[in-house]
């Protein structure tokens, strides 16, 4: 019954959901490029604005989006602390104590980094929230022209919730037999994983065997060309997405030129 945030599609009907997955992948690429290109707060602000628009039009609730960011909060916190306290700026520090010195640039850098990481994680999780694994792999398949990979990825993605559930079940069963996964040193903890990993491995083989049989029974022939039910087609909606993406990159570049760089 537990939920897995990673790779979990959020099933609502929205503008963003309906976009062609290839366009979404290209948009993601354009977005990441923009976030890295941005040299001042105007640029990164524009990126943030676009992200807010995307989130609003996707109808994915905001706390769901924030949950995806939760995983990198520590990373963001640690790096910003390092930037704030150890960045050697020019001119007078704002505050100093021993080896620690806080410069204006340090704070800017940290803030910039936080925004960047935040936007990067948000935009990639928006892709998985609004695109089914099948659509996503279809998109990848269509862009990179690889075939079996798409099926393998689709199965792998669909197994994530199941295997997570399996781990939970095995873990509970061993906990009930007094297993302790939380205390002790590293070696003790790694050894404590054996009673989970072995049953998990056996379960995975069993599931794989069952699945192979079920695929066989449904006339799957490796290598034979399959007709795809969901055909990808660019529509007017996708044109809007394309224009927004293109405008974003251009906008960020222009802002870099006209507003100057912070650094």
């Amino acid at each position: 019954m537990k939920d897995v945030a990673f790779g979990q599609y959020y099933p609502v009907d929205s503008f963003v959901h309906k976009l062609d997955p290839r366009l979404k992948l290209l948009f993601l690429a354009a977005y990441i490029t923009s976030v890295f290109l941005a040299r001042n707060f105007w640029g990164i602000g524009l990126c943030a604005l676009v992200m807010i628009a995307v989130i609003l039009s996707s109808r994915v609730p905001i706390h769901k989006v924030l949950r995806a960011v939760r995983g990198v909060v520590i990373l963001i916190a640690v790096t910003s602390v390092i930037y704030i306290f150890f960045y050697d700026g020019e001119g007078e520090p704002l505050w100093s104590w021993g080896v620690f010195a806080v410069y204006r640039e340090g704070i800017y850098f940290a803030l910039f980094l936080v925004l960047r990481l935040f936007l990067l994680v948000t935009c990639s999780s928006m892709l998985t929230y609004t695109t089914t694994p099948v659509a996503l792999t279809d998109g990848i398949e269509s862009i990179f022209r690889v075939h079996v990979v798409a099926l393998v990825m689709s199965i792998a993605l669909r197994m994530i919730p199941e295997l997570t559930g399996e781990v939970e079940r095995i873990k509970n069963a061993q906990k009930a037999r007094g297993a302790d996964f939380e205390s002790g040193g590293l070696i003790r903890r790694v050894r404590a994983l054996v009673p989970i990993l072995i049953p998990l491995l056996i379960s995975s083989f069993r599931i794989a065997g069952d699945l192979a049989e079920a695929m066989d029974a449904r006339c799957y022939m490796a290598g034979k060309k399959r007709i795809k039910y969901k055909k990808l087609a660019f529509g007017p909606r996708d044109l809007v997405g394309f224009l927004v993406g293109a405008a974003l990159v251009t906008g960020v570049v222009l802002l870099n030129v006209y507003m100057g760089s912070v650094f």
Binding site: R169, I170, A173, A176, R177, P195, P199, S203
Partner: peptide, 18 residues
């Protein structure tokens, strides 16, 4: 507590590992 309250899950054979 867990020593006093034994729990056998559904399909307990899937927990065997040793």
């Amino acid at each position: 507590l867990r020593q006093k309250v034994g729990m056998v899950f559904q399909y307990p054979e899937y927990q065997l590992f040793a």
